[in-house]
Write a protein that binds this DNA or RNA. Structure first.
Lengths: 115, 115
DNA sequence: ACGACACTGAACCGGTTGGTGCAATAACGG
DNA sequence: CCGTTATTGCACCAACCGGTTCAGTGTCGT
């Protein structure tokens, strides 16, 4: 019951924002320059409403920044540089490497090298 | 361009597996050595059934490997090394840097153009 | 002013997620 | 064989997700 609080942890938001190929595509597209909701939606054959939701998720994660310009919304890459996300993965990589320092290294290496 | 696109399914599973602090904790814990379902569940005050589900998600993403040993299940870090996840984030980082190649590249032009 | 345009809010929908409890199963320990 | 232990399968639940449609709202072009 205690843990029913907001799951709005930064890392949670970033990773779940990235856990969707449409949203990763959006980031890639925005890497080439700003775009409107319509321009983002068109290559995915998606409704504007649907795309707005995706952009909102990315914006909440800090990965995208948007600004209303006239009747359209200009979307561009945001300030979040994924440093935290990267750092956590690096940390995990280190754990994984350390796993090889244990007893399992023996079996893993044997299975890998067949020597 | 955009050749950094790996299997989207894999990336989806990895990122959504990481998008939960309980599961990130599990990975951290397993970095210190193998553990049973019960041992993983206890510090989170979670039922065994609940923990089994989390472990299953991690296992489907390749981040954890499990093996039934007697009446308990031994969980350890898996073969997935997050290289793909890391690679995608790096790719995004490069996009972000390139965002600076707009008006602001003007200021750092003395260094970056040779690449 | 009027109509077309770009987006947004709300309601809805089927599927998934994160959790529970309970009954069953398999493996010990004696 | 019996009782305990560790996990699992199943049913259930509320919340969330990715998507839609429809009805606005505000802006632009003429």
């Amino acid at each position: 019951m205690v843990n029913h609080m907001v799951q709005h942890d930064t890392l949670d938001r970033i990773y779940s924002a990235l856990a969707d190929s449409t949203r990763r595509d959006i980031l890639t597209r925005l890497g080439e320059g700003p775009a409107s909701i319509g321009e983002l939606a068109e290559p995915h054959g998606m409704t504007l409403t649907g795309m707005t939701k995706h952009v909102r998720v990315l914006e909440d994660a800090g990965l995208v920044r948007t600004e209303k310009v006239g009747r359209s919304r200009q979307c561009r890459l945001g300030e979040e540089r994924l440093d935290d996300a990267m750092a956590w993965i690096s940390f995990y990589q280190r754990l994984w490497e350390r796993r090889l320092d244990g007893l399992e290294a023996y079996f893993t290496l044997q299975r890998g090298t067949e020597e």
